[in-house]
């Protein structure tokens, strides 16, 4: 097991319409390792349910999902990489 602390990856998907934000998350996820944190910024109104669906599908961990005045922020902990 890799005991080192994971990286924090920022995905700025603001201003990108569906299905862009999830596509950007998947691209970041492909290069990520277990233990990494992916923070996503999005403005697409479908992002909130979509990221929940993605989490459910992939089995990663959603640490945070909050609405700010100008964006939705999700913090994902990568745990399901094989």
């Amino acid at each position: 097991m890799d005991m080192s602390q994971g990286n924090r990856i920022l995905v700025d998907a603001r201003g990108i319409a569906c299905p862009g934000p999830i596509t950007e998350v998947v691209k970041a996820y492909r290069n990520a390792r277990n233990g990494d944190l992916i923070e996503v910024w999005a403005t697409d109104p479908g992002f909130e349910p979509d990221i929940r669906a993605w989490i459910q599908r992939t089995g990663n961990q959603l640490l945070e999902l909050r609405k700010e005045s100008d964006k939705i922020v999700a913090v994902i902990k990568v745990t399901a990489k094989k």
């Binding site: 569906c18 299905p19 999830i22 596509t23 998947v26 993605w54 599908r57």
Partner: peptide, 10 residues
Amino acid sequence: GVISQAATAL
């Protein structure tokens, strides 16, 4: 376009 992009990403 939308469905193919989303589905392949998933």
